[in-house]
Structure formats: C-alpha cells, structure tokens
C-alpha cells in the first residue's frame, strides 16, 4: 500500500461524470503491451497443438460414431486458430496489465498457500494457518507487529471452532 495515494486520491473530488471516468482511467495500472498478447496467443496455439496430438492418440472416430478424441480435436483446432488470430491482432486485441514491482507479492502469496497445502497433511492446519495469517498480515498487509500476532493466533482458533468443533469436518488438525 502506497501511503500517499491512500491519503490523497488522485485528482481530488470530480465534479462531473466525465471527470470521474477520467479519474478512474488515471488510477488504472499501466496496460500490458502487444508483446504480452503475442506471447499469450503463441501459448494458446501451443496448447492447441498439444491438444491435437492428444486427441489423435485417443481415437478420432467418425462423424456418425464420434470417438473419444473427436471433440477435444475440434476444441484444440479452435484454440490454434484463436491463438494465431490473437498474435495477428496483438495491437488491437485489448491489453491486460503490466507486471509491476508489486507482482512479487502475488508470487509470495501463492507460495505461502502452497506451503500451507504441503504442511497440512503432515502437521494439521493450525500451525500452517497461523503462519499464513501472520505472513499475510505483517508482510503482505503491512499491519503492525501486535495486530499481526493477534490475528495469527485468533484466525486458527476461529477456524478450529468452525471446521473442527462445529462442523466436525475431517480437516487434518494437530490439536
């Protein structure tokens, strides 16, 4: 969270609908470029090629007796066509968002979830949940030490009450 942006919204109070729309446009992160579209299109076409190879090995059948591979083949060919089309129209096909310096937060967030998943089968969910909560509060959420620690303790307790005590689910638990 960038504090200065949080305190002073860009452009102040808009007076008209048009200004408001323009302000939203300004606040949007920078758009990704045509290169991302080329890469996406190529990846999609590759997926299509893999799908075609897979479909052929499944048995294509005929139109009167379609086999297991008929439909995957149709979809895969469509993906190849669409992928190529996206590459060809990379400049006009609309853009997503550039990866920013903040994107590491997403990688870190995802890594914490995978770590949680790896641990849960071995030591139950409580400790991984506390670690995940603390990481998200302190590191990703910029919370203070105190509220992060309190949150990291409260959240597993609260989920224990719901999923173990109340719902009696089979979620692996240590305590």
């Amino acid at each position: 969270m960038t504090p200065d942006r949080a305190e002073t919204p860009v452009g102040g109070e808009p007076e008209s609908v048009e200004e408001l729309v323009a302000q939203w446009e300004d606040e949007k992160p920078p758009a990704s470029g045509p290169l991302t579209n080329v890469a996406t299109g190529a990846l999609v076409a590759l997926l299509g090629v893999a799908g075609v190879i897979g479909s052929r090995s499944l048995g294509l059948g005929s139109t009167s007796q379609p086999g297991p591979g008929t439909w995957p083949l149709v979809v895969s060919v469509a993906l190849i066509v669409l992928g190529v089309l996206l590459v060809a129209r990379a400049r006009t096909a609309g853009f997503g968002e550039k990866f920013s310096v903040d994107s590491w937060r997403v990688v870190a967030g995802l890594a914490s979830m995978i770590a949680f998943t790896l641990l849960i089968g071995n030591i139950g969910f409580e400790i991984p949940a506390a670690l995940l909560a603390f990481f998200w509060l302190k590191v990703l959420g910029n919370e203070g030490w105190r509220s992060s620690a309190v949150g990291a303790v409260l959240m597993p307790v609260f989920f224990y009450l719901i999923f173990v005590t109340l719902l009696k689910t089979n979620i692996p638990h240590y305590f």
Partner: peptide, 26 residues
C-alpha cells in the same frame, strides 16, 4: 489486509472439505 488472510484460509480449508482431499487444495 485483515480480510485477505481470512478469505484465503476459508478457501483453502473449504477446498479440502469438499472431497477430503489435499489434491483439491493444490
């Protein structure tokens, strides 16, 4: 910042309970 970890944990634990499978969380 406070809501995010709560939602993440509800999602991950909820995913397990559908079929009691860690594979589903992955």
């Amino acid at each position: 910042a406070i809501l995010a970890p709560i939602t993440v944990l509800i999602t991950l634990i909820g995913a397990y309970t559908i079929a009691n499978s860690v594979f589903d969380i992955f």
